[in-house]
Design a protein around this nucleic acid. Structure first.
Lengths: 132, 132
DNA sequence: CGGTATCCTGAAGGATACTG
DNA sequence: CAGTATCCTTCAGGATACCG
């Protein structure tokens, strides 16, 4: 255990982005690589930790835990730990988290709609670049 | 100059995210650290390179150039180089880019609105964490 | 099961110098 | 002015091992 980087010791951020406007940090969290995917999954229903791990393909335990902690700390995700054996922890969206998830989903949905246009634009660009 | 990493040689992406759904790449670009800020600035009006550099505080020449190239390649930004001395290059949004900018701005705006709630949630969380 | 702790690497990105 | 080239640092994040 090294000294503290800030926040809750050893936990997620405390990075350089924090020097920018604070809303930027919020944006960072919800649009982060795993943030979008976790919010996207939780938009449908609540999930347990390992359900999420399978649902969000490719995420490591570490990053899932970290992402969930960040989103929980920001008030977007509610964590319910059931004191049973084996342990069972449920994650779901708070009302605030649902708003975030809807906005992110809108952006993600738009991205899917426009992906063809973007690919076309890229080919046109690459074509010009090669010719030039 | 090393071998090619893919795209237009030495240029921006070709990263691991590309293995995910392609719309993910689009999302990445528009929500990237400098992507949001550049789109945000260009939403108001067109800018020249060094105007943008001053407008988007903290961005390095390298990252601004890279961000603009990525956004241009995706078809979000139009680049107009005027063959004069000294050189003059204008950047502006394409219609597609404007759509992206509006959605990102919506998310950014929401983040600003909710920043107080988020900070409150964080303090509550940190308080519980410290007590526990 | 649901995590945490540690180590390590690859990629993002800043600083600086140079160019058409 | 509007970039490109190069070097170098920082850090997100994967692999692995371990714990309540």
């Amino acid at each position: 255990m090294k000294v503290s980087t800030g926040i809750a010791d050893g936990l997620p951020p405390a990075n350089v982005f924090d020097r920018m406007c604070p809303s930027r940090g919020v944006l960072e969290h919800v649009t982060s690589r795993w943030g979008v995917l976790v919010l996207g999954a939780l938009r449908e229903r609540g999930y347990r930790f390992s359900e999420l791990r399978r649902r969000v393909s490719g995420v490591s335990e570490k990053m899932l835990a970290q992402t969930l902690q960040t989103l929980e700390r920001d008030g977007f995700v509610r964590r319910e730990a059931h004191p049973v054996i084996p342990p069972r922890v449920d994650y779901s969206l708070t009302p605030l988290g649902r708003e975030a998830a809807e906005l992110v989903a809108a952006l993600a949905h738009w991205s899917e709609q426009q992906v063809a246009s973007v690919v076309a634009a890229r080919e046109e660009y690459d074509g010009r670049a090669a010719t030039a």
